[in-house]
Amino acid sequence: MQTILKVQNLKKYFPTKKKGVYVKAVDEISFDIFEQDVFALVGESGSGKSTTAYTVVGMYEPTSGKIFYKNFDISYGVDKRPLKLKQEIQIVFQDPGTSLNPSKTVLQIIGAPLTIHKKLRGKSLIEEVLKLLEMVELPSDYLYKLPRDIGGGEKQLIAIARALAPQPSFIVLDEPTSALDVSIQAKIIKTLLRLKEELKLTYLFITHDLSLVRNISNRIAIMYLGKIVEQGPTDRIFSDPAHPYTQMLLSSIPVLTKDEEALKPKHIESTGEIPSPVNVPPGCPFHTRCPFAKQICREKEPPYVEIEPGRIVRCHLFSNGTDGSSKDEEEVQTWS
């Protein structure tokens, strides 16, 4: 498996009005995304998942840390990135209502990246846009429509077509379905997965919806207050969640049947709300809501522990010994 995107100790702090006080939106996170994978970044609002996405595409410049795209250092803002890179990395925003220019026709919207990256004009531009519309299964008479004449789901398909236009290999999907009706979400997801297979794309999928992630992603990272608390393969995280926060998220997925209920980890009551990233609690940031919080959690920041190959957890419950020893495993069993 080839690594396509490598994030190393990425930090993004935003200054506040008060001097010396920062919003620690993203705080020392690292992860790797492999080619043709769907990597999901999951977290509540305010966890820093969108900030991570925007830093990857270059909307923000990282405070510190590195981002590598195919071994090419891209840890700087979009203005300094070469055009070729802007073509390779694309983003689909959450709300298609605001990500499409209300005064442009579909042709102009999808055509813009084509004129920038492929220097297409006139007839060849129209032909290419028609091809893209076909790819997202929209009829060709949408060419001259304005965004306000189109439904929400279709707008998102047009935003996807725009992202596909420059033939990228990596697409950041920033909650692409959360602004849409449930009935349309499935269609968007299906289209995204089909396109990924057809065009051999890699996705960084930002979402707060764990149940959605299960069906589409290979690997997951769960963020809490700017930190990744757990990451690993999707099936492992769902079958055996390690971090108490992951367990809390999994047990709060709404289910319909008793069978589904049985699949979930032992119920952990979701308590409290995510604290403000300006005022991150000392020690483990999750200790204010964690049912297993011990004295050490309030004082010391937990280390990253690799409990299985490719599976990293940031929790004191796993760092009792010197390394991931069997004692930890036992403890896992007692509370999961």
């Binding site: 595409v57 270059g58 909307m59 979009v78 055009l83 802007k86 073509q87 694309q90 983003i91 925003f93 959450q94 709300d95 605001t98 990500s99 499409l100 220019n101 209300p102 813009a112 990246p113 920038i116 990256h117 935003a159 725009r162 420059p166």
Partner: peptide, 10 residues
């Protein structure tokens, strides 16, 4: 976002 999108496209 639509202005951001244009910026990100270059």
């Amino acid at each position: 976002p639509f202005v951001k999108a244009a910026e990100l496209q270059g």
